[in-house]
C-alpha cells in the first residue's frame, strides 16, 4: 500500500512577536517548521504503516528550504521524499503549489491513499486536500481524527458537528486530518542523522511536472496584514452581579473567545 502525504512549511511562531501597536511582526529568529496540522496527517499515515504494510511518501512543493521539512518527515518515519522546486515554483501561491503537488502525485503514481493536514497555521489555508481529491478523482473524507485499514477498506472516524461519525471508504481515497487530531511522534534520533547523511530527497522542477510560469501565475494578490487592536489591561466592569456577568459574557462572545 502506498500513502502519500503532502508537507507544507511555516515560519516558527516561537521565533517572532506580533506587535499590534506597531502593526508589525518582529522576527527574532527566522526558522521554519512543518505545518503542525501536516504532522497530524503524517502521524495518521505512519500509524497505518505501523499497523500493516505500507510505504509512506512525503512530497512538498515551493521553496528549496522545504528540503528540511521533508528530511524531518523522513526522520519521523516516511520512506521517501519528493521536492518540487525551482525558481518558478518558489514564487507561486498556494493554488500553484496545489497544482504542482497534484502533478507530482500523479507522477509518483500508484497511490492508495493521500493524507493531508486540513489547514495551515500561518494562513488558515484549507484548500489543498479536497482540491487534490477532485484533481485526482478520488473519494475524500474531511475532519479526520483516526483511520484504520482492513481488507482494503478504510475505516475513518471524522468530526461531525459536536460529535463524530464513523465512515467507510474504498481506496484510493484522500483524507484531510483535523488539526490536533493526534500527538505526532517525534523524529527519531538515528533517523535524523540518516535523513541528512544517507537518504536522498528526489527533486523535480516545473519542467519535470510539465508546468510553465504561466500555469503557476498567482491567482491572488497579497494585500498586507491586519492586526488586532492593541491590548488594554485593567478595564473594570461595574454594576450588579447580573449586569457584570451579562456584560462579560457578551464581551467574550464578541471577541469570539467563547
Amino acid at each position: 500500500m502506498r500513502i502519500i502525504v503532502p508537507i507544507r512549511q511555516i515560519l516558527d511562531p516561537r521565533g517572532f512577536t506580533v506587535s499590534p501597536r506597531h502593526e508589525r511582526i518582529f522576527i527574532n529568529r527566522e526558522e521554519y517548521i512543518i505545518n503542525p496540522n501536516d504532522k497530524n496527517a503524517l502521524e495518521v499515515a505512519l500509524s497505518l504503516k505501523d499497523a500493516g504494510e505500507a510505504e509512506v511518501i512525503v512530497i512538498a512543493g515551493g521553496q528549496a528550504r522545504l528540503d528540511d521539512a521533508l528530511r524531518e518527515a523522513m526522520a519521523m518515519g516516511a520512506d521517501a521524499a519528493y521536492l518540487l522546486t525551482d525558481e518558478v515554483l518558489a514564487k507561486t501561491d498556494a493554488a500553484g503549489v496545489a497544482e504542482a503537488l497534484a502533478r507530482g502525485i500523479e507522477k509518483i503514481g500508484d497511490f492508495d491513499l493521500i493524507v493531508v493536514g486540513q489547514e495551515t497555521l500561518d494562513t488558515a489555508d484549507a484548500q489543498l486536500g479536497p482540491w487534490l481529491a477532485e484533481y485526482l478523482g478520488v473519494a475524500q473524507v474531511g475532519g479526520v481524527r483516526q483511520a484504520s485499514i482492513s481488507d482494503g477498506v478504510l475505516r475513518v472516524r471524522r468530526n461531525w458537528g459536536a460529535g463524530y461519525a464513523e465512515v467507510e471508504v474504498a481506496l484510493p481515497a484522500l483524507l484531510t486530518v483535523a488539526s490536533g487530531a493526534n500527538k505526532p511522534r517525534y523524529p527519531h534520533g538515528g533517523r535524523i542523522m540518516a535523513a541528512y547523511r544517507e537518504w536522498q530527497v528526489i527533486t523535480w522542477n516545473s519542467e519535470d511536472l510539465g508546468l510553465t510560469a504561466a500555469d503557476l501565475a498567482p491567482l491572488t494578490q497579497g494585500r498586507g496584514r491586519a492586526f488586532p487592536p492593541e491590548r488594554t489591561l485593567g478595564e473594570r466592569l461595574t454594576g450588579s452581579p447580573q449586569d457584570v456577568a451579562a456584560e462579560l459574557v457578551q464581551q467574550l462572545r464578541l471577541r469570539r473567545i467563547i
Binding site: A95, Q118, E119, A124, D125, A126, Q127, L128, G129, P130, W131, A133, E134, Y135, Q140, G142, G143, N159, W160, G161, T176, L219, T220
Partner: peptide, 22 residues
C-alpha cells in the same frame, strides 16, 4: 463547517477556480 470545508475546494477545482478559506 464540516460540509462547506469539504465541498468548496472540490468545486473550485471542478470549476477551474480557487477558494480562499476560513
Amino acid at each position: 463547517a464540516d460540509v462547506g470545508s469539504e465541498l468548496a475546494p472540490r468545486l473550485a477545482r471542478r470549476l477551474g477556480t480557487i477558494v480562499l478559506t476560513n
